[in-house]
Amino acid sequence: MLETALEAIRSIGHRVNDALQTLGFAARFLAMILLYSGQSFRRLRLTIREVYFSGFQSLLIILVSGLFIGMVLGMQGYETLQRYGSSEALGVLVALSLTRELGPVVSALLFASRAGSSITAEIGLMKATEQLTAMDMMAVNPIARVVAPRFWGGVVSMPLLAAMFSAVGVFGGYLVGVVLIGVDEGAFWSQMQGSVDFYLDVWNGIVKSFVFGAAVSLIAVFEGYDAVPTAEGVSSSIKRTVVYSALAILALDLVLTSFMFRGI
């Protein structure tokens, strides 16, 4: 009995130890990325290439999802608002939910599963096939050449994707609310413009998505670089990228929201 209890405590200790070690390595890894970024910015083409792969190629899923979410918000929002006789506030509801929360959070979740997982898979496979070791032996720093461009590509793409998501979402809300249901168009836009503040709502949303982009990109490149170099190891790294990214996005969202919208 005592034996099993001790064993359980010991295994908890091991896990905490491992987790702290990984966290420490991740922090050191981020420092290395920043340190070697100068080297990789001197060849900007590498980063532009990654903006294409993680940003441009996520465009379709982001736009389609944004449109759908905006339309659903339009329907549900109208349903609730019209009970209180204030369906003109539909524009406000759609725009605020999108710019403050749904835009940054949902697009970051989509980004993590679309671009983050493929970054992890790419780097993990390069590691498994010794391409990273080969690069290092050829006096090419793999962090400057492979990791940093992917990290910055994600950091640049994410805010742009989130802004597109929100913009398309507002349009979706407009389609359902104004075109389909028949809320007054003037009231829809003017109430929205009266209540959505550029700095407080739009800009804070962009800041949020920037932070999410950095977090997801770091997790993705780190999991790829830290992957066990086997098929199984790479697949479990991809899984971890998606899971940890989702947790990080939601936890960071709570923290950022409580800083940004305190007492207003």
């Binding site: 465009l59 710019t99 913009a167 507002v170 836009w189 929205m192 413009q193 009266g194 959505v196 739009v202």
Partner: peptide, 23 residues
């Protein structure tokens, strides 16, 4: 394509700033 992507992104920010919010 990257240029197109960045342009659409900035257009979206502009839309949010001018049409949705009211600078």
């Amino acid at each position: 394509w990257v240029g197109f992507f960045v342009a659409v992104g900035f257009f979206a920010v502009l839309f949010l700033a001018l049409r949705v919010g009211n600078v």
